[in-house]
Write a protein that binds this DNA or RNA. Structure first.
Lengths: 154, 154
DNA sequence: TCAAAGATGTAGCCGAGGCTACAAATTCAT
DNA sequence: ATGAATTTGTAGCCTCGGCTACATCTTTGA
């Protein structure tokens, strides 16, 4: 029968007062997440092995070296890392700063999840995804909760 | 000087025992997130206004109708929605099922955040992102925490 | 009723992030 | 020191999710 498109829609001119999603920042946002993941891992690799190579990143991320190489080019354009052909990767000042912020936030999220009784492995894995979506306020709430637990245990 | 790539890397044959990220399911995963967002919103729209139109989805998501139209095509391929040219969008059985799962999970996350003292608006917004990264176990921990609070208040 | 407004469709562009295949450079081991 | 193994680079292809521009269909209102 193909009922007309607007049926229950007569009384609505527009603006149907349902919550709008945050103006789909998604695309740009996602590239930020990737950047954070990368600089975080680069920092870890440097700390652990003295250097960060494309192949190491690729293994850590579970992608091919090609994907990593292209992303590193982008991060270089964005001023987060430096790299020379066939040499390993270094963080710039802002790259290091970002990596530290990310690490700290990541740690908070992991600790918080563990404080809820989530198994360490799961907490670690979930935090990977969650950390990029935790606002200032929520992060603060996490910290507060952690502090309370802390006090409780003393 | 260009120090050689491998320097501190001598003692490492491979497998440097740093945690690997979950085999970058990212790409496919992300399209799942999108699918969930869409079916959730479609269900809401149908509940609220009797129908789900491309333009409504576009407004809710803050993207153009073109993006929505293309995504709807994909969801149709995947058997989550049905749509005919110039007609509004319907959920299939599995679409409805997915939308309900998503809604429930979303609700849990929002309630959980609010229970931590996160302002409702922020909780709502953060949940959008977080809900897609919460594992079974973590979700269970959220529920447990909510129940405890519940009991505390009685 | 019929023209204007609104919604939908289509073509084509872009960047991010996947991939394979192959070439070239570097490192390692004999 | 040199050949094999490893690592890096490059070309080219894909999908997804953004977009603009423009065509077409539907709904609405005078």
């Amino acid at each position: 029968m193909l009922r007309p498109v607007a049926k229950a829609a007569k009384s609505r001119k527009r603006d149907l007062a349902l919550p709008h999603h945050n103006p789909r920042r998604t695309r740009e946002e996602h590239s930020h997440e990737t950047a954070q993941d990368y600089v975080e891992i680069i920092a870890e690799l440097i700390a652990a092995t003295g250097e960060a190579r494309v192949i190491d990143l690729a293994r850590r991320l579970g992608v091919t070296h090609v994907t990593v190489a292209r992303t590193i080019q982008r991060l270089q354009r964005e001023g987060l890392v430096t790299s020379l052909p066939y040499r390993s990767i270094f963080l710039t000042g802002s790259g290091r700063k970002l990596s530290e912020e990310s690490r700290s936030r990541h740690e908070t999220v992991v600790d918080f999840l563990k404080s809820l009784g989530v198994p360490a492995v799961v907490a670690q894995s979930d935090a990977e995804g969650i950390e990029h979506h935790v606002s200032r306020e929520t992060l603060k709430a996490f910290v507060k909760h952690l502090r309370k637990k802390e006090r409780g245990r003393k």
